[in-house]
């Protein structure tokens, strides 16, 4: 993944999370991963197209997702219902969109596809031939892992 793409995603995730959660957010150490990886329970995915192809995956466990959805809606959500799902989807959309806006300013043309959300236990994402950048974010409500896999269109 091009070096220029990294910071916009990290910054966007940091800014958006801090804004919507109104709390401190810490960024973990970035690393690369290429094997199939388990998903913690809730995964929102946004596709990227344009000069590049790829996807951004937001991965968190259910209690974290519920707490974040509750915080964003300013009300206590009891179960991971449609509202909660829509909220997490929106969060994914906000972060990706902000990152892409930043990239646009740097001269990179990206489009994004509407986000989708997956929930369930023992899920695994496997596209072993794609190397993903993992951006771990520690929020007051739990950990979110942002998994970015982007490559130039050959």
């Amino acid at each position: 993944m091009r070096v220029e793409y990294i910071n916009p995603f990290v910054e966007a995730a940091f800014n958006v999370l801090r804004e919507v959660l109104q709390s401190d957010v810490k960024r973990g150490e970035l690393y690369l991963k290429s094997t199939s990886m388990p998903v913690m329970g809730v995964a929102a995915i946004v596709g990227l197209a344009g000069d590049v192809e790829g996807r951004v995956l937001f991965d968190m466990d259910k209690p974290t997702a519920l707490k974040i959805a509750s915080a964003m809606n300013n009300e206590e959500l009891a179960s991971f219902d449609d509202l909660a799902k829509a909220t997490i989807t929106e969060l994914a959309n906000m972060i990706t969109a902000q990152a892409i806006t930043k990239l646009h300013d740097l001269g990179f043309r990206f489009d994004l596809t509407p986000p989708a959300i997956f929930t369930g236990d023992n899920m695994e994402v496997s596209n072993a031939d794609v190397e993903a950048l993992i951006v771990p974010m520690e929020t007051g409500h739990g950990k979110i892992e942002i998994n970015v896999a982007v490559r130039e269109r050959a």
């Binding site: 990294i6 072993a128 031939d129 190397e131």
Partner: peptide, 8 residues
Amino acid sequence: EFHDVMNA
């Protein structure tokens, strides 16, 4: 690119 040559 930030890339590990051991990955695909």
